[in-house]
């Protein structure tokens, strides 16, 4: 019996170590350009750029499929930052994708909410809390102001109001520089 225990311990450890070593050795680097483009995008996940989220849009920019002027939440400042990064000419925002607006936040008129959960399903960042036939509410700190919850609401009880506190939502493991730049952009947008 001890042979079996020892054998499988050794076999398991060897295979585990081997796989760990192989994972290091054969690691595939993802395209660093995509990461850097993604870091400049506002992470609202609003889909106004015609891509499902910021990361897919970053991939499309990196592969040359999409121009850099399709991100209204990023605004002109975002386009300039992207142009600097990629060495391109800054373009005016494409009006087909929407207008640049100050940072906003969704607010649910709680007396009118019928608890249909449609806005919960539409929210790309899970910022709406609620359950079927229960009142819903927006977690202000999580809301990116993407407007995606407005169309599905059957009773039009969601309003977009300008955000009071600056919106900072750093990605996990991201450096403080980005948080700071988001702050600056928010301040600019709020002031203008």
């Amino acid at each position: 019996m001890f042979t079996a225990v020892i054998l499988f311990t050794v076999l398991g450890s060897l295979l585990g170590l081997g796989l760990g070593w192989a994972a290091q050795k054969f690691r595939v680097e993802t395209d660093p350009v995509v990461d850097r483009i993604d870091a400049l995008l506002p992470q609202t996940q609003c889909g106004q750029c015609d891509y499902p989220g910021c990361r897919p849009y970053a991939e499309a920019i990196a592969s040359g499929e999409a121009p850099i002027n399709q991100c209204p939440p990023g605004g002109e400042a975002g386009v300039r930052a992207l142009a600097d990064l990629l060495g391109l000419e800054p373009l005016p925002l494409n009006p087909d994708n929407g207008q640049e607006q100050p940072r906003r936040v969704a607010v649910i008129d709680e007396s009118a909410c019928i608890g249909c959960t449609l806005c919960i399903q539409a929210c790309p960042v899970d910022a709406i809390l609620g359950a079927a036939k229960r009142m819903h509410t927006v977690i202000e700190a999580e809301c990116t102001g993407c407007d995606l919850c407005l169309p599905p609401c059957p009773v039009d009880c969601i309003a977009m109001v300008p955000r009071q506190s600056p919106w900072v939502w750093p990605q996990p493991g991201q450096n403080a520089r980005l948080a700071a730049s988001a702050n600056v952009r928010t301040a600019q947008a709020g002031g203008g």
Partner: peptide
């Protein structure tokens, strides 16, 4: 697993 890693690379 190993094959998958090698193939991916």
């Amino acid at each position: 697993q190993l094959t998958e890693m090698v193939m991916r690379k």
